[in-house]
């Protein structure tokens, strides 16, 4: 075992017993690959999920977040549910590290009027702050 830390040991043992072709990175044990992925900012995970099925599985796994906790790179995001004009419900996420607001995919079975989507992300944060008001303090807490 290269990396210490009892908490995740059993899971790591499981993951390192994979066959070569289902490895995250063919030339490296998954244990090391997870150490690399855990050091990438969370915001990159959404695109990294497309690398392969194994990557998607790893990114969604509790093992990865175990490692991130050990590394102290949890990166908590702030999620805000907003109700815009026509009772349309939208989730937004703030990544305090990159200070980027992201619109989450619309929830299924919720009316989907695309006009709000097309207005672009730039205008949204202001509206959101004014809607949620005191949540600035929440964001401050998370950033500390």
């Amino acid at each position: 075992m290269v990396f210490q830390g009892e908490a995740c040991k059993r899971q790591r043992l499981l993951s390192s017993s994979y066959e070569d072709n289902s490895r995250l990175i063919p030339s490296l044990p998954d244990e090391i690959s997870i150490q690399i992925i855990a050091r990438v900012p969370r915001i990159s995970y959404l695109s990294l999920k497309s690398v392969s099925r194994a990557w998607k599985e790893a990114i969604l796994s509790s093992e990865l977040f175990c490692v991130r906790r050990e590394l102290g790179t949890m990166e908590e995001w702030l999620y805000v549910l907003t109700k815009v004009n026509d009772d349309k419900l939208l989730w937004y996420a703030l990544d305090p590290l990159s200070r980027r607001w992201q619109k989450l995919p619309p929830m299924p079975n919720v009316s989907s009027e695309d006009e709000v989507v097309k207005k672009g992300l730039a205008a949204l944060p202001i509206r959101m702050w004014s809607m949620v008001g005191s949540s600035i303090r929440i964001a401050d807490v998370i950033m500390n």
Binding site: L24, I36, A38, R39, V40, S44, V51, S52
Partner: peptide, 25 residues
């Protein structure tokens, strides 16, 4: 590991696959 993570964080999926030799399944 940190250096490689820094390298891939802003790269395209295609780059990451090529860099690590991962087959797109």
């Amino acid at each position: 590991c940190q250096a490689v993570a820094d390298l891939i964080q802003d790269k395209s999926v295609k780059f990451v696959r090529k860099f690590f030799g991962v087959v797109n399944d």
